[in-house]
Design a protein around this nucleic acid. Structure first.
Lengths: 244, 244
DNA sequence: GGTTCAAGTTAGGTCATACCATTAGCATTC
DNA sequence: GAATGCTAATGGTATGACCTAACTTGAACC
């Protein structure tokens, strides 16, 4: 294996280097993020200068930037005042990761749908246990937006409103981890449903939304859960007939 | 918006190109995955040949591979018969994404801990509603492993056993989406707790595990939930004293 | 004949350099 | 003074060379 005169001796010297250079660069940036030395909005050095500082080639810096960019940690802009900037966190990455797991058949669509329903129901449970009544204003706005989108016959707007609707439900939990997770799930479901949107009668949709909201207003969280589950089951089922 | 030679004409020509080349390459691979033309285990062409096929430079191919690799879709090996292979899905990416969201202060540790507790409780709720009793064998094995690790004084082994314990709880749900999510959460919590592992008396740990398991065996899911929550609260709290 | 070792081959990893493309700001021009 | 064009900064792409790790092969040796 290595310099190894005696038969059974193990390598005395650790490998000089095992990580690839761009991985080291990525880790350096992550470290600065963890130390708080880099914060969202901050700018990394230009690629050429960064390469000089780190004593690596520009290629290495760029491959590291691709990783950081794909991880959602930085975003890059071209041109004069361009560069790589530390990004605020978003849902995109989690959506992509879960989507990739579906691509790789590590997660089935059924499980995704079920998990989403369960999480949203869980949020309602949690909201029902709060001592103070939740602020339903954003949710009401989302319902109004849905109604407006339906009236306007604008399906893209309707999808966006639906996304906001479920987002606002998650927000009721006050837990950002749950918000990110459910948002990612909603994005994925909408992606898979994009091809057969208007399977549901617009009237049924609005009725469901309004009824759900009213139940929340009256504190009938169990009823709301049932209404939500029935609606989600219908939505999810609409994909089933088409699939396979 | 089309051919419009009048005075106020808007751009008649669509942009030649907007996506960066490596993004196109990434999308090509993703497409082949979605079509099922590429499956886990398959090998992509060597970088040089791939570049020729796509008529781009090797740099572009490499940056695309970095993205795919970071996304967990491929893994690369050096040497003869090396290359980029389509990877099976794993937990690592989701863990990284959630960790990055914490790095960026988009998610607080408190929310992560709470979400984890809620998800695990939800799993128990779901298990309690099954018509057939769950298979508790893997869970029992994890508890045994924890006991063995504690007896051996091997804290690394103990951490691994704890990970498996929570993993097996999630498995009881039979939902892979929940399994991936909770696994990622567990990995993160363990990362943040790594520095202060033995805050809990080993005996208390074992007792909690055994009691929990016994409650499940007897079908007392509500009691099990309480036991689990109390345990998790203790664990999470142990990080609190140190933090900030 | 089988073991060992060394050269060859493959393919990823790195470097260096040149040039293209885009953006912002400044200068020029009418 | 507003449209136009130049310039510098900075990311994006293309080449080509060389290094390094891992597998293959075959020859030398026991």
């Amino acid at each position: 294996m290595a310099a190894n005169p005696s038969k059974t001796s193990k390598p005395v010297f650790a490998p000089v280097r095992q990580d690839r250079n761009f991985e080291v660069v990525v880790q350096r940036v992550r470290d600065k993020l963890m130390d708080g030395e880099l914060r969202p909005g901050d700018k990394l050095p230009p690629e050429r200068e960064f390469a000089k500082q780190l004593n690596v080639s520009r290629n290495v810096v760029r491959e590291a930037l691709r990783i950081l960019e794909n991880a959602g940690l930085v975003r890059t802009r071209k041109g004069a005042h361009g560069g790589a900037f530390v990004a605020p966190g978003g849902t995109a990455q989690m959506t992509q990761v879960m989507g990739d797991l579906i691509l790789l058949n590590a997660i089935s669509l059924e499980d995704l749908f079920e998990a989403r329903t369960l999480l949203l129901e869980m949020v309602l449970d949690k909201v029902g246990q709060l001592d103070h009544p939740p602020d339903l204003e954003p949710l009401a706005n989302a319902v109004e937006e849905t109604r407006a989108a339906v009236m306007a016959g604008d399906s893209a707007r309707r999808v966006a409103a639906a996304r906001d609707f479920y987002h606002q439900i998650a927000e009721l939990s006050g837990n950002s981890a749950l918000v990110f997770t459910t948002n990612a799930q909603t994005d994925l479901v909408q992606t898979f449903l994009r091809f057969r949107i208007s399977d549901m009668e617009p009237e049924d949709l609005i009725n469901s939304r309004v009824a759900f909201l009213e139940m929340l207003r009256e504190g009938k969280f169990e009823d709301a859960k049932v209404e939500l589950r029935q609606h989600l089951d219908r939505v999810h089922k609409s994909l089933w007939s088409k699939k396979s």
